[in-house]
Write a protein that binds this DNA or RNA. Structure first.
Lengths: 338, 338
DNA sequence: TATTAATGTCGAAGCGCTTCGACGAACCGG
DNA sequence: CCGGTTCGTCGAAGCGCTTCGACATTAATA
C-alpha cells in the first residue's frame, strides 16, 4: 500500500501538503493540487484509517446498537438501520453494528475510540445503556425515549400523540368501544418505551372522550394473534374499533377476524400503527398511523452529526403522527361526529 | 483517556510490558501481571483502537456487505447478519455494516485498512464486487456462489442439491406434476446465484425422474403470490406438488391456495425452502428444506477467520440440504413409491 | 561448576497520518 | 518603496500502540 509519503515524493511536495490537499484545511495552489491528485490516483493511494484516527481522533465511524430482541419486528428494525446507514454515508461515515444490547459492547467501542458517535435503538424506560452512553465522550442519540435521558438527545415518533390520534379518529367515526391489540408481553415486560407511551396516549384520550379501551397484549405469531382476537371478542364483544400496534401480528389478526366473521372496514374498524409499506401489504389497505422508521433513523444521524460538529445542547425530537385513512376503518354504530 | 504509558507508570513497568500483558505474546511473571492489571482497571484504561490498528495492522473489525435489495426477505437477511455478528464477537471482532452493493464502499474499507476481512452476501452470478474483493489484501468469504469465485472462499446452502431433494421427495410420494413458485422476477433478472442453482437442481432431477416441473416467478406480495397461484392453476391444473422458494410470498401463496379451494397437505403438497422458523409460523407447519441462515453466517466468519490466521487455500463449502416432513405434504395420485 | 537455555523486562524504532509554527514570496496601501 | 498581510508550502513533533533486539536473571544440563 502506498503511503502519504510515497504520494508526496511522487508529486514532489511535502507530506503535509498532500494532507492539506486531502483535507482542504489550508489553501493549496491549483497546479500543486493537480500534481498531488495525479500522484494519488497513479499510486492508488488510500489514507490509512487507523493512522488517521490516531492523528486526528476522528474515526468517521458511528456505532449503531440495534438489539435483535424477541417481539420486535425485524423488517421494521431494518428500516431504522437502513436509514441510519444511508444518512451516515452522506456524512462520510460508516456504521459499526452492535446487535447485543450489553453494556460491554458499548464501552468497548466508546472507550476504545472506535467510533465518533453512537445511535441506540429499542430503548427501555430504565435502560442500563443510557447512563453508560451519557458518560462516554462520544455524542449519542437514542431512538426511543427513556425515563431519564440524562442529557442525551432522543428522537422517536410521538407515540403518546399517536395513541390519542388513533382514539380520536375512531371516536369521531362513532366508535365507543375500542381495543388495542398491542405489543408482545415480553416487550411490555421490558418496559419498552414506545409501547408504554402509546398506551398512555390511548388511555388519556379515552378518558377525555369518555370511551372505553380494552388492552390486549399479543404475541407476533399466528397463534398469539388468534388468541388475542378470540379473548377480545369474548370479553368485549361490543368492540367495533381496534388499534393494532404490532407489525408481526397484524396479518394474523386480520386473518383471525375474517375467520371469526368480522368484516374489517365494515363491522370492524381497524387502525394500524406501523410503517406505511406494512399497512399497504395487508389483505386490505389499512388505515394507519405511519411509523416512519427510515426517516427516524436519518434524523438520528442528523442530530448526532450536529452534536459532533459543534457543542450543542441535547434535544428531544418527537415526530408528529400522521393518520392516513384507507379501507380498514369506517363509521361506527354512533355514526360520524361532525 | 488514560494511555498505555499512564498504565506503565502507575504499575512501575515499561510500556512494552503492559503491551505484553495485554497481548500475551511474551511471558510475564504473575506479580507483574497483577500490578499491571490493577493499574489498568484503576485507570479504566482502554487501548486506542486506531493506534493499535496502526501499529499492528489489525483492526479487529470485519466488513459485512448486506445489500438490502428488493425481492429478498429482510428477516432472512437479518438471520445471516445475526450469525455473522455473533460469531465475529467470538473472535473478538466487530462488524462494519455496508448496505449498498456498490464497489466504492468495498474499496473504501479495504483500501483504507478499516477492516481485517470481508463477508459479502447476496452474490450474483457475475457480481462486480467479486473481482474487487479478490484484489483486496483482506481475505473474503462470499455467502453465495458466483460464476467465477476467483480464488475467494464461498459458503452457501447447496441449492442445487436442495432442488433435487425437493423433487425427489415429491416424486417418491407419488407426485408427477410439480411446480416451483420461485423468487421474484427482479431476483432472477439479477441472476442471483441461489435462485438459479435451485432451478437447475430441480430441472435435473425432474429429467431424471421423468416428471414435469413448471416454474413460476413470484413477487413477494399478496398480489404477486395470488397471480402466481392463479396462473399455475390455470396453465397446469394437474399440479399436485408445489415447491415454494420465496419466504415473503409463502403465507400469501398458502392463503391463495386456500381461497382457491386447494387443501394444502391433502389435495396439494407444498414443500418450502426457507428457514425453519418461517416454515413453522405458517398456518400449517410446512414440510421444508431448511435454509440455515444464521449458521451460514457463522460458518462464513469461521472461514474468514481461518484464512486470517494462516494462509489457506480458498474453499467452497456447500451445506447439505435437510428436508423435514411436516403437515403440508402428503402422498400424491400415484401413491408412495417404495 | 561452567555453559547453555529459558524466562522476564526494557528501550527504542517505527506504523501513517494531522497539525502547528515557521518562512519565503507575492501583494496591498500609504 | 517599505512594513504588514495573505498565500502556499515545508519540517517536525506528536497521536498511542506493537514489536524487535538486547540484557539481566534464573534454571537446566552436563
Amino acid at each position: 500500500m502506498a503511503t502519504i509519503d510515497d504520494v508526496a515524493k511522487a508529486a514532489g511536495v511535502s507530506t503535509s501538503t498532500v494532507s492539506y490537499v486531502l483535507s482542504g484545511k489550508r489553501p493549496i495552489s491549483a497546479p500543486t493540487r493537480a500534481r498531488v491528485e495525479r500522484a494519488i490516483d497513479k499510486l492508488g493511494y488510500r489514507p490509512h484509517a487507523g493512522a488517521r484516527a490516531l492523528a486526528s481522533s476522528r474515526t468517521n465511524v458511528i456505532a449503531l446498537m440495534a438489539p435483535l430482541r424477541v417481539g420486535v419486528s425485524v423488517p421494521v428494525i431494518m428500516q431504522f438501520v437502513a436509514g441510519v446507514v444511508t444518512r451516515a454515508r452522506d456524512f462520510n461515515h460508516d456504521v459499526l453494528l452492535l446487535t447485543q444490547d450489553d453494556v460491554s459492547g458499548l464501552d468497548r467501542v466508546t472507550g476504545g475510540s472506535m467510533v465518533d458517535a453512537l445511535v441506540m435503538m429499542d430503548i427501555e424506560a430504565d435502560d442500563p445503556r443510557v447512563p453508560v452512553a451519557a458518560a462516554a465522550k462520544q455524542p449519542t442519540v437514542l431512538i426511543g425515549l427513556p425515563q431519564d435521558p440524562e442529557g442525551l438527545s432522543c428522537v422517536d415518533l410521538d407515540f403518546d400523540a399517536a395513541g390519542r390520534l388513533a382514539v380520536r379518529h375512531l371516536v369521531k367515526a362513532g366508535h365507543t368501544d375500542i381495543a388495542l391489540i398491542g405489543s408482545p408481553p415480553e416487550v411490555l415486560r421490558r418496559h419498552t418505551a414506545f409501547a408504554e407511551r402509546l398506551m398512555r396516549g390511548l388511555r388519556d384520550q379515552a378518558k377525555i372522550s369518555g370511551v372505553t379501551v380494552k388492552v390486549e397484549a399479543c404475541d407476533s405469531t399466528p397463534t398469539g394473534a388468534s388468541e388475542a382476537v378470540d379473548t377480545l371478542l369474548a370479553t368485549a364483544p361490543e368492540t367495533t374499533g381496534i388499534i393494532v400496534h404490532n407489525e408481526g401480528a397484524l396479518p394474523h389478526v386480520l386473518a383471525r377476524l375474517a375467520e371469526r366473521g368480522a368484516v374489517v372496514g365494515t363491522d370492524m374498524s381497524v387502525v394500524a400503527v406501523c410503517p406505511t409499506d406494512v399497512a399497504l401489504s395487508q389483505r386490505i389497505p389499512m388505515t394507519s398511523i405511519d411509523l416512519p422508521a427510515e426517516d427516524i433513523g436519518k434524523v438520528a444521524v442528523d442530530m448526532v452529526m450536529a452534536r459532533l460538529e459543534s457543542e450543542q445542547p441535547s434535544e428531544t425530537r418527537l415526530l408528529a403522527p400522521v393518520l392516513t385513512e384507507r379501507e380498514s376503518s369506517a363509521d361506527g354504530p354512533a355514526g360520524p361526529l361532525d
